[in-house]
Write a protein that binds this DNA or RNA. Structure first.
Lengths: 207, 207, 207, 207
DNA sequence: GATGAATGAGTTTTCATTCAT
DNA sequence: AATGAATGAAAACTCATTCAT
């Protein structure tokens, strides 16, 4: 009725543990993908398994919380770029930021790149990401800096593609993704005159 | 109970079972990814679980055998294209064939795209694939049909990237990969004059 | 944070919390049986889980406290009936009151009906219940209103039996127990001349 | 396609384990109720936990299999009694057999006596039990051996009631249920002239 | 005194792998 | 050689109880 904690602030040790947990889980998911066990996450955070479930109602919710944090960061970055002077550079900066997240995080790749995505909040965040991606793309498109039919959703999708291209190299060459990012960006900005052989994805078919 | 099969020796039965098993496993892995259980594969093949382990020492070996089969098919296709009249069309045909394998096969995506690939034979097959990809690429490169620094390994890697880009769309739009294949191909063939910001992967760093 | 409650000392707060807790627990146990979690009880009472354990040393003690409360109420009702004009009606009134408690309270059924009952205070209360039941029964027996060998303990035990008979019906027919109460009462009061094939329970063998 | 085992017969060791498992589970459920863990059952049977799930798809299925076995036995007993010479003795024999099952088996009491019963096969078996109980009851009723309104469902329900009445005594006096069985039977057969204050349950409202 | 965060043993269930038949 | 039964080590999740704040 009156909320969990009188003044709306959680206990300091709980806050600290939640932080520990999120960090440990983020690291574990990043390294091991969605398959890492709650047991390992708890161990990394230095807490008991029960504590994980006190803070997050299920493994899926924990995963979603972390994915949402990363998506929101990326959305913020993108928002900041919508008013940049050079729309082309802004779009490339956005793409770069996005690919870096994918490159660092195995779970992110697995969650975002799968055909059927369950979690409603994550889907909503992806929608928001596509929206702001479209803003950035539209500005560049209007000035002829990208090919006519390219959409924000295209750009968002290509982030995962660039990561996947470089994936087998990343252990030995952590920056190899930069090569494919540029190559794909050249594909986006190429003025071939030809139309692409398949229409752009409708916004909502993403998730 | 211990009776012989009328139309074959014990050995020919084993050969037939191996074939049954490979086909069933290929289908199962393609649809469900590497997580499909040995039980489901055995059931699809119409054999007992024990038979799976008689033919393949572990699940990983079975998976590797399937992956090798697909890689060999792709290598054959590529070999056939090395003498085609139009090197540009040949390269694109190769890329198309490769992406189609990825699109059809969840396990293939999961196995090939991982940073550290254990299985020696699969690594060797990927090396062979990169070799033949390099032959195709070199022919196109020599005629100025692709950018200067692009290698066969780049091309092989990009197959996975194109699939991953389209992955979230494929359930609703099974042909969406064609959009990104063209876009990436335009990136490969773009004559920007600029060099890519990161050197091509050395052949052996792949896995 | 550490503030006093305006209208009471710390002790009166504790008294109030104990009351809140007993009421909430009674309701929860009645609805959900002994399996309801301490968490749910605390939530219903609007207190923290720690408070439950400050007032009751374990879940079993809390449960016992509730059971004791109900047993004492029933004992009081029975005591009031020992001086009623019609000993037969008094006995039936007692039986009715008892069955109603069982019908309303899942935990009561589960606790009382188990072969080995641990809690000493609850056992003592059941003894007291049997005593007063015996008083009521004796009065009726003396006037020939019940069969010769029937004891107070028999009557007390039959309460649970009537409830259990009707249990599968109660969701659809909340008053169905009345059918079996009358049937059993007719069994108690039947003048068959025959003796029952097994002696009445000795008072102390109850738990 | 051709069934699990060629000739329709399971392997002898599997049959043996299934028997071991059913016996161990029956014993464990009888003693400890539905809450006994699969781990304990496996241990009692001398098999691994996995073996339990090989034979029964879930704990609920195992429990249902055992309950069904007991219900079917009781139904058979009842069927055999439908042609007995003395319908009154037959009805009492049926009641006795049923109460004995309840008395021996904690899980049976818990499963059958609960308001909402999930398992479809168990519900069907209970329906069958009520049917045959009605046959037995009708014969006795037609000869004026039981009160007019008493139905087979009443009789089936009363089995649980008799058990519950005696439950607290059974540890010390394992045969105490015989006392209450006779008392209840006298209630069923009493010719009071009075009607019971609540109508008999409709057949289907049982489960 | 009150709180609710942390704990960890315990539950059901899955599945690759081994082995008796 | 083939089978499928048995195994047991995980995994996600629950909850009574303890304890720092």
């Amino acid at each position: 009725m009156a909320g969990k904690t009188p003044a709306g602030s959680a206990r300091s040790d709980a806050v600290r543990n939640r932080r520990l947990l999120l960090d440990a889980a983020a690291e574990a998911f990043a390294e091991g993908g969605v398959e890492v066990s709650i047991g390992e996450i708890a161990q990394r955070a230095g807490v008991g398994k029960g504590t994980v479930f006190r803070h997050f109602v299920s493994k899926d919710e924990l995963l979603a919380a972390i994915m949402l944090g990363m998506l929101d960061e990326l959305i913020d970055t993108a928002s900041g770029l919508t008013t940049a002077d050079d729309p082309g550079a802004a779009l490339k900066g956005f793409l770069t930021a996005g690919v870096q997240i994918f490159v660092r995080d195995r779970a992110f790749c697995e969650v975002i790149g799968r055909p059927s995505l369950q979690h409603a909040e994550v889907r909503a965040a992806i929608d928001r990401l596509c929206d702001v991606a479209e803003q950035l793309t539209a500005r560049a498109r209007d000035r002829g800096l990208v090919r006519p039919g390219i959409t924000g959703t295209d750009v968002a999708l290509l982030m995962a593609g660039v990561q996947q291209t470089a994936a087998p190299l990343l252990a030995a060459e952590p920056q190899a993704w930069r090569r494919y990012l540029d190559l794909v960006f050249d594909g986006i900005t190429a003025s071939t005159g030809r139309e692409l052989p398949y229409p752009p994805p409708s916004h909502l078919s993403l998730a």
